[in-house]
Amino acid sequence: MADSAREPRDGALAPPAPDADEALMLAYAAGDAAAFDRLYARHRGPLYRYVLRQVRDAGAAEELFQDVWMNAIRARASYAPTAKFTTWLYTLAHHRVVDHWRQRGGVALVSLDDGDDGDGTGALVDALPGPRTDEPETRVASRMTAERVREAISALPPAQREAFVLHVESELPLADIARITGEGVETVKSRVRYAYAKLRSALGDAR
């Protein structure tokens, strides 16, 4: 995905194409339920997987997923195409996931990157257990299974996992991920780079 192709300029986007997400959302805000159906069909899978990767529980993921869409429905009137629809939608999902973890015991998606962001948390990364690299050869002997991939992603630190999922599964550019997560683009880039590195080592030949 070209990261700069749909970058907003001067805080506003060019007039959306009729079939673009932004146009569909505006149409839905004007009362076109069919536009919402198209939007939903287009984003339901990636958004659900994003939530599922974060909470790692299907029941909770469906609940959060539904909440995200309800929030989007409620906020339709205030939607303005100053940014891409996906950015707006995943921002809603990010906030809902953060709320979910807070409700579950104050877990925060603190960055556990390698210290490129200068917050001194890079040392923690080395202390974390790796993604079961001790068994990669036996588990990817016949090709990497979906279970192993999911486990590998789940083994990622939450911040890296979120950035990786948004970047790979939801195919969002780093700039959008930075907006969604409220981090800098370079931070997001580091998280994605670390996630890739750990998955490579975790999956090995399973790719």
Binding site: F36, Y40, R49, E62, W69, R76, A146, V168
Partner: peptide
């Protein structure tokens, strides 16, 4: 590889509930 193995989707009930809520919202 990640995309190929990541095929999870929400349940049909969730889909229906969300679509119905969207239709109700716009009347």
């Amino acid at each position: 590889a990640v995309r190929e193995h990541g095929r999870e989707t929400p349940g049909a009930k969730v889909d229906d509930a969300i679509r119905a809520a969207a239709r109700r919202a716009v009347g």
